[in-house]
Design a binder for these strands. Structure first.
Lengths: 347, 347
DNA sequence: CTGAAAGCGCTTACAG
DNA sequence: CTGAAAGCGCTTACAG
């Protein structure tokens, strides 16, 4: 089966009628529509997207840009695949397809994005890995391409984004540990200049201050956001002259490396050191003793991202009224065994 | 900047000349070409892909289909992102873009593929997760869509594929363990009906037979191909009345769960039990004692997949002459500490 | 070396 | 309710 012409010829009607029947336009005889649908199914006809796109000025494709840097490849915990399902559930209602656009590591992300957008491969974009200053945001805003970002940025004043509640995580974790009697609480932070690191530390500091616990900079352990970083964090922690009784992690995979290093020194999480992890990642779910960490539904996050994006697009706006343009995504603490001990009983 | 008409008008020349200049056609005055290129750059003009695709009958896009099933999301080790770079390095030479097509978990992979292909979103496809019987392969063959598969299949007799050398891994691992004095060697296999499981076990069996070691079915441990499966495998292994002195794993993440379960029973890999892992995954790289496992360059694998695919496409065939249509991808053993002991010294 | 024109496969006002 | 025709943005024979 080639194109709509062949299908129309096969049915002995005009291509216009075929198109209207296929696209569910109202002014088509029901019997005609039935015949068209049946023939299309039988012959496996599906409209060529280039033809449609050219005529309609839209591609019905949403792009999810991902950066396949070495760091991401080695450490990402398929975060994106998790979000994908939620996105697709929203897009499916509008017959929109989600494609992932992997930016080659040797191409500038900004140039890549420009190219994809200019070629009109997609109608809208979801970007992630936002930087404190991110030219992509300015570009998309100015080019009036609908987009939503996973992550805050200092670029542009008003654009749609969803970000994880790093402040809330730090706050909850500190409060919980203090309520369990801890006073000497370490925290990890990314060694990079990522915005979230600042948010995390600030919130930690404020929570301590609420309880009149002085902020001790030696308890802020800067390491890479990776499994290796967790190992390194445990190592540095064990070297501190006055060892903290608890530690809060900022990245999901850190817990795995941290546990390993602690075990090597026979320091047992949940007995000798309280540990609160970050996200409830599949890999971390398997740790023993079980990790106290924060639950997040990647599916729901995907749904929210999808809705927020469509709310910015004229063609779909009406389906998603009154939504927020910015969301701090809450995470829920899941108590495990890794911090389930009374610090008073220690020492 | 809208389209080629605006650009042509801006330059006071015809759209045909603009197109020829932009596309590097020879019969264009160099001064004209220079002016066109400069103006395009300045005004940010990039040809609309729908227009090109419609006219040329090709999209210049290659699709990499991935299945975002729950299993994949929880366990995949970003294998695809690793392959992506290699693919892109090949495609970049021909100005082809790679897009990832995530099949929604509630959609039949076969239907999804048909839809994407019929819509002409892509010129060619890379599929993975091949099943023993895989309708996608028959469909793509019949529809004459260029494709390459990552994984063998019993479907269709002759299609381009690359698969990992599971036989070689089993064979090398057994030979190595026997040379270290082991006689009682366990092996893991997937609990599913995956083809690779059969290949793996067969090769293991043959290697044993070469050394007159009888095949003992209780030493074939069927578990899920996941971290949890590794944990389970260790558990079952420890329950065996006559414990084996070595175990061979079939999936990269198994080692992590296996190590954990062994440690819980104070069984130390490389001292109390020899362990040979599968792929040298980033996460497994961090295990202690270091894991003996097989190295594979995902980048090189991506390059090979890309070349094999282009070799099947008339437009690019000439660039890749004489390539194989099927490759068993070799893996190289990287000795670590997890099997570095003389079994004679044990017991 | 350049321009004018055809046509890729669709959808959609417009007539009837 | 249906058909004929225009036109989306390109590339490419064809004339000149």
């Amino acid at each position: 089966m080639k194109g709509i012409h062949q299908l129309a010829e096969h049915l002995n009607i005009s291509i216009g009628t075929v198109s209207r029947a296929l696209n569910g336009k109202p002014d088509v005889n029901e019997e005609t529509r039935r015949r068209v649908l049946a023939a299309a199914e039988e012959l496996g006809y599906v409209a060529n997207q280039s033809g449609r796109s050219l005529r309609q000025g839209e591609t019905k494709v949403i792009g999810l840009m991902i950066e396949s840097s070495k760091e991401t490849v080695e450490n990402a915990d398929n975060f994106f695949l998790g979000v994908t399902s939620g996105l697709q559930s929203v897009f499916a209602r509008h017959k929109l397809d989600l494609l992932m656009l992997p930016c080659p590591s040797d191409e500038d992300p900004h140039e890549y994005l420009k190219r994809m957008v200019a070629r009109r491969i997609v109608d809208a974009m979801i970007i992630s890995d936002t930087q404190r200053v991110d030219r992509r945001i300015d570009f998309l805003s100015r080019a009036k391409i609908p987009f939503v970002a996973l992550g805050r940025s200092l670029s542009a004043s008003n654009f749609p984004w969803i970000d994880l509640d790093f402040e809330g995580v730090a706050d909850h974790a500190v409060e919980r540990l203090i309520s369990l009697g801890h006073r000497r609480i370490a925290i990890t932070a990314p060694s990079s200049e990522a915005n979230l690191g600042y948010l995390f530390i600030d919130s930690y500091r404020r929570a301590l201050e609420r309880h009149d616990i002085p902020f001790d900079p030696t308890l802020v352990i800067r390491v890479k956001s990776s499994e290796q970083g967790g190992y390194q964090a445990a190592h540095e922690l064990l070297l501190l002259e006055e060892r903290p009784t608890a530690v809060i992690l900022i990245y999901e995979l850190m817990a795995i490396g941290l546990y390993r290093r602690l075990m090597e020194s026979s320091v047992m999480p949940g007995r000798d050191l309280a540990v609160i992890g970050f996200r409830d990642a599949p890999r971390a779910r398997f740790l023993q003793p079980s990790l106290s960490c924060f639950r997040i539904s990647l599916y729901d996050l995907g749904v929210a991202l999808g809705r927020m994006l469509l709310a910015t697009m004229p063609a779909y706006r009406d389906f998603y009224p009154g939504g927020e343009r910015n969301i701090i995504w809450p995470l829920e603490l899941m108590p495990g065994e890794s911090d389930a001990f009374d610090v008073g009983a220690m020492v």
